[in-house]
Write a protein that binds this DNA or RNA. Sequence first.
DNA 1: TAGTTCACG
DNA 2: ACGTACGTGAACTAC
Length: 895
Amino acid sequence: MVNFIPMGEKMTKNKKLLLIDGNSVSFRAFFAMHNVLDKFVSGDGIHTNALYAFNNMLDIILKDEDPTHALVAFDAGKTTFRTEMFSDYKGTRAKTPPELMEQLPLIQEMLNLRGIKTYQLKNYEADDIIGTMSRKGQSEGMDVTIITGDRDLTQLTTDKVTVRVNVKGVTETEAYTPEHVKEKLGITPEQIIDMKGLMGDTSDHYPGVEKVGEKTAIKLLNEYGSMEGLYEHVDEMRKSKLKEHLINDKDQALLSKKLATINCDAPVELKLGELEYRGDNQEQLIKFYQRMDFKSFLEKMDVDTEEVKEEMADIKFSELNSDAVDKIVNVDKPQTVIVESFGENYHISPIIGLAIESDKEYYSTTDISILENDKLKAWLADDSKEKYVFDNKKTVALLNRYGCEFAGVSFDMLLVSYLLDTNDNKTDIGLVAQNYGHNLPNEEEFYGKGVKKAVPDDDQVLMNFICQKAHIINVLHDTMMAELKKNDQDSLYDEIELPLSNVLASMEIKGVKVDASRLKEMQNDFAGRLSDIEKQIYEEAGEEFNINSPKQLGVILFEKLKLPVIKKTKTGYSTAVDVLEKLKSKSPVVQKILDYRQISKINSTYAVGLQKFIQPDNRIHTIYQQTLTQTGRLSSIEPNLQNIPIRIDEGRQIRKAFVPQSEDWEMFSADYSQVELRVLAHISGDENMQEAFKEDYDIHAHTAMRIFGLDSTDEVTPDMRRKAKATNFGIVYGISDYGLSQNIGITRKEAAQFIDSYFEQYPGVKKYMDDIVKFARENGYVETIMHRRRYLPDIHSKNFNIRNFAQRTAMNTPIQGSAADIIKVAMINMQKKLKEENLKTNLLLQVHDEMIFEAPKSEIPILEKLVPSVMDSAVKLDVPLKVGSAHGYSWYEAK
DNA sequence: TAGTTCACG
DNA sequence: ACGTACGTGAACTAC
């Protein structure tokens, strides 16, 4: 088929108008990068985070949209025609943070340098300017795209006008066409103002009709078409609360609709011709970027400024040979060491290159035999020779495999970066560098990914790369350490994370002995039982299917066997445990499926799964991720040794395969009892909870007694204790009545009463919960007893769910995180003690609130005293810490 | 690669 | 009116 396109139309590109809501995008840009606020400061001390994010977004949008015309509209001031109509309009809106205020003029300046017109109009909001210009553009036959962070602007969408709303920060947008509005809300763009009028707007602070939210408003509009239509027929509605509210709040609703309506006839004195997009003013823009310290944007412009050159240029380095070693060992300043490996798991992957920066000289080699040089070996192991690295734990583990000890690290850029901000993924030095505005390829960019992943053929390229890594560590050292100090996190780093990285390295290197033959036996046993159950399930289902597929299982249970659907997931029927538990009584096949699932999980993940990780030394060497969790806990991978089954005996048998190194040794474990609740008692200062721990009461029974209003714990039934225990857990997680009701199978109302009486009994806890959320709102982060930080930008979210989640996180993180701090201190002290006392015992594993050791039998009596005393004295809280311990022939027995 | 499920604290 | 417990990792299926 041939498309005939008239010549004229083919030749002229359709004109495209880009309209940006300057205020709302700036706001979003600011909060999207709120966690790096202090990292983005220009030479003259002005914050630049919003500027940076705005510009990033601009790059993407300009590329995407390729506009011929562009305009960024700003609000002119607080008073507008809307505040005249309704004095409280935007009444409770928090005032713009000063750190953003100072950036707004710069944003306008930058936009102009980028060839984009900016405009504001007295008495009107940016929305109105955009509305007006979008109609002008449309009537001239232009395609119009609007960029905003405010969903209300979707009322402007038409066939020619697309509204792109920022989601998650500013670099991603969701595009609204009339069809998409319809799909998403079930109403037309024109009806959005009616909807807003009916439901009101909390953030702009205008009221709607009482008890009418989005859902109700949409339902009403689908029935009556518009607010006016609705009020014409309101008398015909049958008597209901809704009808009453509609009638009572009619005036408010009509006013709110007016407030929500964007004025598309504002007296904007702009001609479309003036909006022509001219592109960057190169010369001025470079100066501007330099003033703002925007290195990455400068690099994008292909500009050879001196500063950039220094950073991007190939680094001059010489061969790391014995001559170089002679120089290195005699330097007294800190020196930077890079040990480069290739492969996922550093316990098995080879070292492929080394680099050392020494007094501004760079030395590098891919010839690993230099590690046999005795002088270098001694220098690496010398604690008094100060070193900088990225990932101390990995470096220690790698060098250990090549027969070298490694000590003396004072700066681990990975750890510092994690302490400064847990939010982004910081396991890659390139990404950290990029975060600080420096240009260093990350691992994926350098080595490639998937099938293309490979070490470069040219050794020079590799050596240059690792020298650049060393260079960036030096460049960022001062800034990052200063920031650490400013956050009052230097002792968290010096006394906890850095020493801990050495403890973890030795735990990983030691590994834990696992009896492969035992796992093999279990695997065989499970395989037999699985095929039995499988047969029975097929029989009862009347056909064969994949039991592991939730999809196929759903069809069998809910369509073939017609069992009631309890819960749905995004993709279909839920077949999770809590659902199956409820269906158990309806069909005998359900219990069999539960059994199958359980055994199949234990078999595939543990019995079979763990065998793959047993190394030739008969041991499993996990990797502890020290810089991953948002709370400060560790995590364990390849394999995860922090989730070995224990709750059900079937799975618990797996622990019998975890054994000590030789016959006259045992496994020894020690765990904290209720650390998190004790931490809560401490940081909340709640007297009732503190008393319970000081007196060493059964905390859950004691809670039950209090919330059920009993006189003594003797009256507490097991069921009451169970409920109280769940409530205590709920409190730690940042409780909601719904969550608690689901967990202990009571109604939401009852759960709410539980929580009320809990807070009455523990008023200090209530106060803590309120205060910590307030703290998070004011400071943008929360912290643990050791000043570990977690930034919570979502605490300002307009979205109810996202904001609530951030609030629960604010409550939970100081608790979970402080508990993590405590055991970390205990681990460091423990390792030190074992050495001081000349014990052979090895610390092998950590599982959040417990430590697992292997020890000669003769040392067990010593450990039984020593370990609990080290653990309970790790930190001094207002309540005592309690520690339990056990030992036996395997991890199973050490319970 | 996303979604579901389930193992642990 | 909204739709929920906090923090993880791994196996498996299905797109």
